[in-house]
Design a binder for these strands. Structure first.
Lengths: 272, 272
DNA sequence: CAATGTGTAAAGCTC
DNA sequence: GAGCTTTGCACATTG
């Protein structure tokens, strides 16, 4: 290997890419590889697709991930192979050909470059692991999980009738029933079971139907009267109609409300 | 502008990127831009995230799409902004900073490069339009739509009791009801209405619940007995249980079965 | 614009 | 591994 990553080849010949890039793509360990150029692509697997000539960007990641992006548009790749997959480079009729194969299921992408504008090998670094001690810590907030926690800690802010969890809060979240796992299960001041389904985005009819399945399951299994509450920033019209029809309720909660509430001590903390 | 796309800058200074790349990023028309290097990233919008230092690949597409990929792993980007969005480059404390903002909703990604391994501007080409006369035609097969068409053309292969569509097949597909739009609605030899829900992947309990909502709606609206059939390559255990509990049926059909059947004239075509 | 459903969905988590 | 849910889901289509 003449060059050490990172390096870039500008308008390389297929042979040059093969000679200088392939060792880093196939070796152990693998290095991130990016190839940009005019190409066509074929995919065979669960479905099947053909993409005509366009400028695209191929990315091969060391975990095996392969993605091929159209250079002009779309957040979604034209073709891809999630890890675990392997990529191979070869030349064919004067063209550079990249073949990617998934190792777990039969899916293949074949990219034929008529012209390579650039090929590069990048240095290895860390992934986006969410382990907080990782150098590349990735943290995200305003999630579904944070909304659930907020509800457990402030049930009365969702509905005044809701009682705080009895015993450990974990026993009130992700509660299994015959229809699946309910986000939150509490009791109200009348002693009724209250099943709560949480959505971080506007809730649609599927969310309401999911809640109903849980409510039905709890009624059947526990033989008591059960309330169902959908907690979401908003609901669609069809969702609201379904809720009303089946005697279910909904309360508004935005992901950003949660963060604001958690940011600092509330006035209540000082007033006791 | 000293250079014409495509061109590549290897280990450029932030100022060089600004001078040579920014005009193509901000100009009219815009060109595809790729920047790879060690960076951190922050996102604020529907949610909020922070990503520590790692080698990443930023792609700015002329339609406004922005994606930031970790170079080591994952099919999904670390951060992104779908179109319509705009990106701006600037320098800050000796670092190159890329700011991407969505134009329709308040969402921002800020990428700070500690080190730029490569920056490139690619030529403009065509998108992946599915218009068949486009130079970059994108065609895909084994889709949900093809499965629906197969069922309309070969109803008895799904279930021997199913009758062919009466009149134009369009009247039997995407049939509206109060609960939504049913994929296929046919009649069986006993004159019963049959609502068919089609899934191209293994069907789960949500698919079964969706079918039940349609069946209930048709019963209510038409006041007749209605069958419900889920057509899928496979169903989960929970799905099967739900179907059985609610008197619904399922039949196996794989996306690849459809293609095979359509590929050429069947023996039946010759036998009359 | 909202609403609905599909996707080669991917990814994460639990059992 | 199957099964289920979430995703900053994206995306297309239709009203």
């Amino acid at each position: 290997m003449t060059e050490e990553p990172p390096f870039v080849l500008e308008s390389p010949s297929p042979e040059e890419v093969l000679r200088k890039v392939a060792p880093y793509l196939h070796g152990t360990p693998r290095y991130p590889v990016v190839i940009a150029g005019m190409c066509t692509a074929r995919y065979e697997g669960r479905a099947s697709s053909k993409a005509g000539p366009a400028v695209r960007i191929a990315i091969c990641k060391p975990d095996g991930t392969f993605i091929l992006h159209n250079a002009m548009e779309k957040r979604e790749p034209t073709n891809w192979n999630p890890a675990p997959s392997v990529q191979r480079l070869r030349t064919d009729g004067g063209n550079l050909v990249l073949v990617s194969k998934r190792l777990d299921v039969p899916e293949t992408v074949i990219v034929t470059f008529e012209d390579v504008h650039a090929a590069m090998v990048l240095p290895r670094s860390v992934g986006d692991s969410r382990a907080s001690n990782a150098p590349s810590a990735f943290t995200i907030s305003r999630t579904h999980e944070e909304m659930v926690r907020y509800i457990l800690e402030n049930p009365s802010r969702i509905d005044p009738s809701l009682l705080p969890p009895e015993g450990p809060p974990e026993r009130h979240t992700e509660v299994e029933c015959g229809a699946g796992i309910a986000d939150v299960v509490l009791r109200d001041e009348k002693g009724r079971l209250v099943v709560i389904e949480v959505k971080r985005a506007r809730a649609d009819i599927n969310a309401a139907a999911q809640l109903k399945r849980y409510v039905d399951a709890f009624r059947e299994e526990r033989g008591e009267s059960v309330r169902g509450i959908l907690v979401a920033p908003d609901v669609t019209k069809g969702c609201e109609k379904y809720l009303r029809k089946h005697g279910l309720e909904w309360r508004r909660l935005r992901p950003e409300d949660v963060e604001r509430a958690e940011e600092g001590p509330t006035l209540d903390d000082f007033l006791g």
